[in-house]
Design a protein around this nucleic acid. Structure first.
Lengths: 196, 196, 196, 196
DNA sequence: TTCTAACCGAGACGGTACGTCGGGTCTTAAA
DNA sequence: TTTAAGACCCGACGTACCGTCTCGGTTAGAA
């Protein structure tokens, strides 16, 4: 049986590291952030840092994840159209935030780091998609939209639009754009529009 | 009047550097590529390299640009549907190629390097978009598709889908998917579908 | 109160660096020696090297110092004349050795590097002078030579002769020359000569 | 027979280079002086510079030589004691000047550059020694000093004292010191002292 | 006058060493 | 066993200088 031996890990260290990382990733570009700086800001040894997160990218995912969770909980009422708009505004805000370069740099890293890939999928992409899918499922059950087969493709088109516009082309997406996009989306899959 | 003074820059050095960079970016991840390695492979001094390209990202854009130009010239016959399919297959191939991580890393860099941003826009994004737009214009003139107002949005959705699926979610897009996507796109904007 | 924090510096690294430097300074000219080569030979990171010695010259002084210490301990018996001859032969050997160019290059550096100046003084010049002075003092006490006031000047003349002849004019000084020089020196300050 | 073909070398370029080198060696340490800077200051191409002087050290010897010539012509009257004092003051001034580090750096280079060695010998050391020897010869003829056999050794001791004191130990030599040194020297070799 | 050869200033060339910096690991003594 | 501190190895970075080479153009004497 495995007993817990030695000094237990300090929760304070965890918190200090995340706080420091969140702060530093906010005000500096991903590349310019050094693990050393985070360790110093957190008042923590580098080993303590690496014992919890294997590398900079992994720590960055942690920070991003917490940012997503914050966003997620803020939008939670209204009908499907409202939900969708709220979710997409959340996504827009995240992609336009100071963490934009952290997101894209992490995505870059995932190209040749499978573990990070998995982590990023589960802690960042999935949670964002999940909101959309939960809402969608409820909307279908409530008869708000058609039970289309390939909503994956449509969702990817929707999300892709945001990633591409904001991160690649670097045109920001205003609220009016989002209304138009959502309405176009609902025009395709919504039930009410065929009733009109 | 400005005369040409001093020894002119060697075209051979240009070529050697680009060839070396293309080769090395192909077989190594962007992060693992060092400017020093490129200089050595090209048989060129580091100063010669930095005289032309200020940093790794700028050189990477050069390499990507030439890859895009190669792709572009390969697809050039058939009707609009054919063209669109060809173009998107080209985009898919590029985003799925060994240069995928170079592209995403360059995009990452553009987040905090305005000059690189401009360069990437003009030498990579614009050329790719241009193909689509030229074809579109011709298609409208020939009455193949509706003269819709906001084809920008639709194109971004299309391109975004590819960037998102391949680079972010990392699901590859097969030929069948492309047919489906194009048909869905034409169902929205094509004229023939309203005739059905 | 100052406690010892962090990982202590590795004595093994110190030793490896000094051994490597000694070896490389021996077989290459000072100018051709690179810090990188020393680091590699020592199996040590460049940072580790620069953490201890700020530059090539400082490291060279370290190497020279250890060479002086080796020489010093070799000559230690006989009367004052014998001692003087031994010491000057040691100086001659050092200035004629493979380290000659290291010595002169370090002296060159001291012209515009005060810290190196101090270091060179304390770790190289002083130890060499000290031998002569100790012997002198003993010789005076034992009545072998006159208690002259300005032996500094005479010593500088003696040492200067060696530096000038070997390093500047680059004529080597043979054993016979040394005997002559010492006898001339003792003819000036020795007691026995006035007794003859 | 070799005829002079092509455009003759520009005297103006020679002068400009020497002037620039003299100026720059004066105000910067030898190490910090770059051939490029001299070429720019002289308004001359680097090739023009290297066509005349093979490297920095060779050019430095040129500068030093001209400095020696300047000094030489300044002292030329009085008896031998006066001459010797003047000459040594000239040497002292040169070794204490802004060119001190140039001298020592050139000496350093001569350790592994035989051509420079020859050049330095003929253009710097010899001229300085020559003054002393000419004066000595005349003094011997005029019966001012003994016709000693090995005045080489004594001269080396004298010059060595200056090089060692000023460049190595870096104690400056004041006028009073020079008087003392000269008188000690003449006490050894002078005729008048035995007459007193 | 035209030709030829060496020159000129400017600056790019291949090399090479520099000293710094960051990543991720390891080693202390203390808790 | 974890902690903070900080040294460790590794290797890329971008700069600077070396001494050479290549431009277009100049300057002389020879043909």
């Amino acid at each position: 049986m495995s007993k817990i031996l030695g000094r237990p890990r300090s929760q304070a260290a965890d918190d200090a590291i995340i706080a420091a990382a969140t702060k530093i990733f906010y005000k500096q570009s991903y590349q310019d952030v050094s693990m050393e700086a985070i360790a110093i800001e957190a008042g923590v040894g580098k080993a303590t840092l690496y014992r919890r997160w294997a590398n900079k990218a992994t720590l960055a995912v942690e920070v991003l994840m917490r940012q997503v969770i914050q966003e997620k909980t803020e939008y939670s009422s209204g009908n499907y159209r409202q939900h969708l708009i709220s979710n997409l505004m959340g996504l827009r805000d995240m992609l336009s935030s100071e963490y934009a370069d952290v997101i894209i740099c992490v995505i870059a890293e995932t190209q040749y780091n499978p573990e990070l890939r998995t982590l990023f999928d589960q802690h960042f992409l999935k949670p964002v998609q999940a909101i959309g899918e939960q809402d969608l499922k409820r909307a279908i059950q409530q008869g708000e939209i058609k039970d289309i087969v390939d909503h994956n493709l449509l969702f990817d088109q929707l999300f892709g639009l945001f990633y591409y516009r904001i991160l690649v082309v670097q045109n920001n997406i205003c609220d009016k754009d989002i209304y138009a996009i959502v309405d176009a989306f609902l025009a395709l899959v919504g039930i009410n529009n065929s009733e009109k």
